[in-house]
Measured scan of single mutants.
Amino acid sequence: CHSECLGNCSQPDDPTKCVACRNFYLDGRCVETCPPPYYHFQDWRCVNFSFCQDLHHKCKNSRRQGCHQYVIHNNKCIPECPSGYTMNSSNLLCTPCLGPCPKVCHLLEGEKTIDSVTSAQELRGCTVINGSLIINIRGGNNLAAELEANLGLIEEISGYLKIRRSYALVSLSFFRKLRLIRGETLEIGNYSFYALDNQNLRQLWDWSKHNLTITQGKLFFHYNPKLCLSEIHKMEEVSGTKGRQERNDIALKTNGDQASCENELLKFSYIRTSFDKILLRWEPYWPPDFRDLLGFMLFYKEAPYQNVTEFDGQDACGSNSWTVVDIDPPLRSNDPKSQNHPGWLMRGLKPWTQYAIFVKTLVTFSDERRTYGAKSDIIYVQTDATNPSVPLDPISVSNSSSQIILKWKPPSDPNGNITHYLVFWERQAEDSELFELDYCLKGLKLPSRTWSPPFESEDSQKHNQSEYEDSAGECCSCPKTDSQILKELEESSFRKTFEDYLHNVVFVPRKT
Rank of each mutant, 00 (worst) to 15 (best):
K103Y: 05
E109H: 14
E109L: 10
T118H: 13
T118D: 08
L123C: 05
T127P: 04
I129W: 04
N130A: 11
G131P: 00
I135S: 00
N136L: 10
N141A: 15
N142M: 08
A144Y: 05
A145E: 13
E148S: 06
N150G: 04
V170K: 04
S171K: 08
S171E: 10
L172I: 15
S173H: 13
F174I: 14
F174D: 00
F175A: 02
K177Q: 05
K177P: 01
K177Y: 09
E184A: 07
I188G: 10
N190V: 11
Y191K: 06
S192G: 11
L196W: 14
N198D: 01
W207L: 06
L212N: 01
T213A: 07
T213C: 12
G217M: 01
H222K: 01
N224A: 01
L227D: 00
K234C: 12
G240T: 03
K242F: 08
R244S: 05
R244Y: 08
E246A: 05
N248C: 13
L252V: 13
D257G: 05
S260R: 10
S260M: 07
C261G: 02
S269P: 01
S274C: 07
S274H: 06
F275N: 05
K277W: 03
L279S: 07
P284R: 08
Y285N: 09
R291K: 08
M297I: 07
Y300V: 07
K301Y: 03
P304S: 05
G313Q: 13
C317Q: 05
S321V: 09
W322S: 01
T323V: 14
V324A: 10
D335T: 13
P336Q: 14
P342L: 09
G343Q: 14
G348T: 14
L349V: 05
K350R: 14
W352V: 08
V359Q: 00
V359G: 01
L362I: 11
V363E: 02
E368N: 02
T371P: 10
Y372L: 12
A374P: 15
I379N: 04
I379G: 02
V381Y: 02
A385T: 14
V397R: 09
N399L: 09
N399V: 08
N399A: 12
P410T: 13
P411S: 02
